[in-house]
Amino acid sequence: MGRCVRFVCNMLASTGAATIFFGKGLLGIVESGRIGRRTVAQIYAIGCQSIFVIMLIGFFCGMVLGLQGYYTLVKFGSVGLLGSAISLTLIRELGPVLTAIMLTGRAGSSMTAEIGVMRISDQIDALDVMDINSMAYLVSPRLLASLVAFPLLTALFDVIGILGGYVTGVLMLGINEGVYFYRIEASVLPIDVWGGFVKSLVFALLVTTVCCYQGYTTHLRRDSAGPAAVGNATTQAVVVSCVCILAADYVLTSFFL
């Protein structure tokens, strides 16, 4: 019982601390004079280096949706709707969520590890001593970069996923090509696209905040110290990010439907 209470208290405390952390990161965007170059470097690290893996996952995801969708729809004699099913699932749900989860693993974990190592080797203290705002130096560019990278990669994921569905649905299972694309055009509304876009922005801020926060506070961990703390911080960053993504997805979906 006592442990339960303490767990909840700890969770509330770190949620509050992470929120303040996020606010400082946002402030850093305005304060920092030279954020541009670092942001571009981060867009490269978060975005460009993830393009291939996002395309791969998107393609297979679309193929699986095509197969599953076909065998479900064929029971009702409405395989013509396959295009709608695939595109709506991808654009509204799977695109933003899977992209964010993939980016957590690829980019988020490396943010935590990098900032964590800087923390335990006094590099962040050194920045502060030089009167360089470490939040503006480390966190703000990553926040900005993720706001660019997440939506773009989500869009890429959606498009490639729809192509994957095309491969299974049209090329392998023989649905009419025109019907597939017509259904997509007819059923996807601007609100769906906007919904997915907003989701990817929210996930970007969530993942970056959680991952940077975990790295930045590595030295405060009580379960471990030194390199082990960096490892634990990285693990926790990935787990917490994934939970946050799915929880936020539920909340956002209930707004957009």
């Binding site: 990098e114 800087m118 080797s121 006094d122 590099q123 203290d125």
Partner: peptide, 16 residues
């Protein structure tokens, strides 16, 4: 802080 220069025990140079 602007008037201080600090050498940390292991240098604390930014690795990147």
């Amino acid at each position: 802080r602007r008037r201080m220069g600090v050498l940390f025990q292991d240098g604390a140079l930014l690795g990147s």
